[in-house]
């Protein structure tokens, strides 16, 4: 790995890691179900950027773009179903608070 691409990868790696950490923190710290989904979105965005960065460094842009497109389609479908589940929870408890739905315990 050449010095230039190494530096680029390290820079991107650090920022991607920070973005993923923000997403995970949001998922864990919040009680609001929609905010938790926003955290998931941030986490998945970090991963998307990582794939693109890897494609740039290894010069496999075509393959990584194909992967990213598939991944974005999957992401949207997962989000749609997740929002359906959140709306379902709300129709039962009339709130979006995760503390209201702690019936089951791991």
């Amino acid at each position: 790995m050449s010095a230039e691409s190494l530096q680029l990868f390290c820079t991107f790696g650090i920022f991607i890691f920070m973005l993923a950490a923000i997403g995970v923190y949001c998922m864990l710290a919040t009680y609001n179900l929609i905010r938790a989904l926003i955290g998931v979105e941030l986490l998945l965005k970090a991963v998307t950027l990582l794939i693109v960065a890897v494609g740039y460094i290894t010069k496999h842009n075509a393959l990584t773009q194909a992967m990213v497109i598939t991944f974005i389609v999957i992401e949207v479908v997962v989000m749609t179903v997740a929002i359906g589940v959140v709306l379902g929870i709300r129709s039962h408890t009339n709130s979006l608070d995760a503390r209201d739905i702690r019936n089951l315990k791991g």
Binding site: T48, V52, N61, V68, I69
Partner: peptide, 19 residues
């Protein structure tokens, strides 16, 4: 924008329009 700068224009368009 970052994706576009990283030489992945098609993925960037997808990200912009879909996400």
């Amino acid at each position: 924008i970052l994706m576009f700068r990283l030489n992945s224009p098609i993925a960037a368009v997808f990200e912009l329009s879909v996400c």
